Each structure stands twice: as structure tokens, then as C-alpha cells.
Computed example of a mutant assay.
Amino acid sequence: MTRLKNALRGHFIAPVKTAGEEPTDKDYLELAKWISGVTDDTDEETDDTGFYDGDGTKETTVTGVSGAYTFEGFYDSEDPAQALVAAKKYKIGEDRKVWHKVVSADRKKQWIGLATISDIKAGDGDATDYEAFGCKLTFNQLPKEKPFP
């Protein structure tokens, strides 16, 4: 199998228009310009339990998954995706939600779901640095996996 660069994986966001209604492909904005790092911050909850039908060794069961990605880079207020994130900085509750679509680097699969934006940075850093950008997108439920068109 060929190794693929992380930059080939796509992260797209879209505003929430009508609750529960997925956006069309043209509604999505790619979160990529001046983004230098994306960290998979998925959190898993597990339960370790041993059973009498085995030898008593504990088995790990994943009981919950909270998918999340953290973005970092430089801020461009004219980039539509970064502008959407920046506009949510002083919002709370439902106003922090967006659609998040992740496309695999091999362009074979995609994961789509509602997500909450947190840890927004849109203009941050030392005086001699370029303005920093960052945010965390956390899926509110398990995203739906689909083949990529």
C-alpha cells in the first residue's frame, strides 16, 4: 500500500441551517488554508471486566467514542472556513454547532456529522508572529461513514 500524506485528508465544515438536515456538497468549506497541523483528539471510554466463562483475565470493552480533531495554523480572516469558525467565538450552545465532514486521504471514505467548535483562536500570538488560528471540532454523535463520491 502507498503511504499517503496527511494533507490529502480533507476536513470540511458547513453551517447548520435546519436542524438535522445535512448540507449539500456545495455548502461545505474546506478547513485547510494556512492549517499546519491537525491532531486526532478522539476520546474513548472503556470498561475492563473479567468473566467466569474465560480465565478471569480482564477484557476491554469500548463503551463510548467521542471523535474530535484539533486544528492549528495561521489566521486568515478572508478564508471562508476560518471566518465561519471565528464567527462562533463568542457564541454558546447550539450556535457553536457546524457540520463536519472528514474525507480519507485515499478519497474512498468520508465521515459526516454534527460537531461542536471549541477552543477557538482567531488572531493570537506574539507581536512578531503571524496571527494564530486554532479550534477543536468534536462530533456530537458517532459520524456516519459513507463511500466518498
Rank of each mutant, 00 (worst) to 15 (best):
M1K: 09
T2I: 11
T2A: 14
R3T: 13
L4R: 13
H11V: 08
A14Q: 06
A14T: 03
E22P: 01
K26I: 11
D27W: 06
L29N: 03
E30C: 04
W34V: 01
S36Q: 08
G37M: 10
V38R: 03
V38T: 12
V38Y: 01
T39M: 09
D41S: 08
D43E: 14
D43G: 05
D47P: 00
T49R: 10
T49Y: 10
F51D: 15
Y52Q: 15
Y52W: 12
G54F: 06
D55S: 08
G56E: 11
G56Q: 01
T57Y: 02
T57W: 04
T60Q: 08
V62K: 09
T63W: 03
G64S: 14
V65L: 15
S66K: 04
Y69P: 00
G73Q: 04
Y75I: 06
D76W: 02
A83M: 09
A83R: 00
A83H: 06
A87R: 07
A87G: 10
K89Q: 03
K89A: 13
K91M: 14
E94P: 06
R96C: 11
K97A: 03
H100M: 01
V102W: 00
D106K: 08
R107C: 05
K109E: 13
K109D: 15
G113R: 00
K121V: 12
F139A: 01
N140W: 03
P143F: 07
K144T: 14
E145Y: 05
P147V: 14
P147C: 14
P149R: 02
